[in-house]
Structure formats: C-alpha cells, structure tokens
C-alpha cells in the first residue's frame, strides 16, 4: 500500500492523461433541459463527477475535461435527455 500523497498524485496524472482532448471543441454531451426530470441518476453515477446540479436539480456540465466517454450517463438516463456526439 502506498501512502495517500502518491495515490493522489497518480490519480491527478491519470486525470491529465485523459485520451480525449476537449480544448478545441465543445463537450461531447448535450442535455435536453425540457425532457430532464432532475432524477439525479447521471450526477450520482458519473464516475468522474462531470455534472453538478443546478438550482432545479438538473445537471449542468461542470467539468467537461473529466469526461472519458464511458456512456454511463446517457445509458442510464430514463428520459433520454442526455445525448452524446462521440466520434
């Protein structure tokens, strides 16, 4: 077991080594706020904490650079409110 300091470091490095680069383009996800019912599933299940709730409880993309295109958010969206434009 390594100490917590190095663990955080490797985590940060892993975050930097995200193979998807979003510096030139918009984030790959779109949220249809008209269809969203604020069920909180995408916010809770996202492993990279990309979403934050707004004041209505609906998700906004707070950290687009963390997205690894794992498809968990739109696969679990019961209202088809999240759409992706993955290449």
């Amino acid at each position: 077991m390594s100490d917590s300091g190095t663990g955080d470091q490797t985590k940060a490095e892993a975050g930097k080594k995200n193979k998807y680069d979003y510096t030139n383009g918009p984030p790959p996800l779109e949220i249809n706020m008209k269809w969203c019912k604020a069920c909180n599933i995408c916010i809770a299940l996202c492993p990279k904490e990309v979403f934050e709730p707004n004041r209505d409880g609906k998700p906004i993309i707070a950290r687009p650079e963390n997205c690894t295109q794992c498809t968990i958010c739109w696969v679990h969206c019961p209202d088809l409110a999240i759409t992706s434009n993955y290449k």
């Binding site: 019912k37 679990h76 969206c77 209202d79 088809l80």
Partner: peptide, 18 residues
Amino acid sequence: GMPSVWCAGCGNGIVMTA
C-alpha cells in the same frame, strides 16, 4: 409527448433505451 409520463428516475425509461 416526450417527456414520458413516468416518474423522475423510473427504470422503465432505461429499459426503453436498452
């Protein structure tokens, strides 16, 4: 008539997309 009639977070929508 989307959004659907189901409650917020209902699993039926997840089954529908699957």
